[in-house]
Design a protein around this nucleic acid. Sequence first.
DNA 1: AAGCCGGGGGA
DNA 2: TCCCCAGGCTT
Length: 334
Amino acid sequence: MPWKGEKDAYKVWLSEIILQQTRVEQGWNYYEKFIQQYPTVIQLANAKDEAVFKLWEGLGYYTRCRNLLHTARVVRDNYNGRFPSDYNAILNLKGIGNYTAAAIASFCFNQPYAVVDGNVLRVLSRFFGIENPIDSTEGKKLFSKLAQECLDAAGPGEYNQSIMDFGATVCKPVPVCRQCPLQKNCIAFNTNKVGILPVKEKSIRKKERWFTYFVFSYKDKTFVQQRTAKDIWQNLYEFYLEETLTDPAWNHQKIKHWLHKKNIFPSKETVIIPAKKQVLTHQVIHGYFILIEPKTLPSALKGAWLSKKEIKHKAFPQFIHQFTGKTNLQLQFL
DNA sequence: AAGCCGGGGGA
DNA sequence: TCCCCAGGCTT
């Protein structure tokens, strides 16, 4: 792994935050961009929020970005720009939970705290044949206690790296038992339960939502607004949004009617572009982009009219980015 | 204790 | 499709 042996707490922290629920191949370019742009935690702390969100754009779980900024500023202001080495002090920083605190404490300061992530849960549940659900409260307690007991106190950092590497390369979701050096003592292997471990009890129900984005452009500017509600994509930007519970099935007649109610009159034929659906953790977003050039500037909209250049510096969710970023047709329109 | 938060890739 | 990813915060 590219970060092997890294001791700089800023770099370890940054990479751990970026890699939370994120594959290495997906997150590593972002890590390198961040380090290049902000080589020290002080420089990150001094950055403008919008610039950091723009750098984070596309990574998902955007509260991580908000917490990243917050913690960088706490480290700058309360810890003289150096990460604390005490486990509980690390744990108290925003965006850092049990896993990340143990990772920083053991990798950077060689303290005896066992990491428990998806890899570790898989390895422990299989090797010891534990069928308690890993997402139950008892399960979490049981596994973190067991992990702590297994920890090699002589080299906690190296032990933590090793068990995660093992889970990532051998004891994978679909494991390579044939190559496994622990096969002989693995309870799951010997009782033919590799396929059912680890056990999870909760399954996520996904909610369907329909987003119609009206892309208003007037002269060389486009209307955008920032998402502030307690909902997905907080702090990111978007176009004018109309949400429905079912497929609005837009056609030109329906749009004309909708615009008329809002006292908006297009100067030319509108364009309807079905969006590519976006699957999130708890919901599926479907929708449309409807391009409109009004005759006069609609006054009722609460937001900003920005030029193409200004829009480039704002962070948008991937659902919108896949639309603004791709084709020339849409770029010309913007 | 349960629900919520993105986006991508592999089987 | 479904599952998983070097998880954490809010209610």
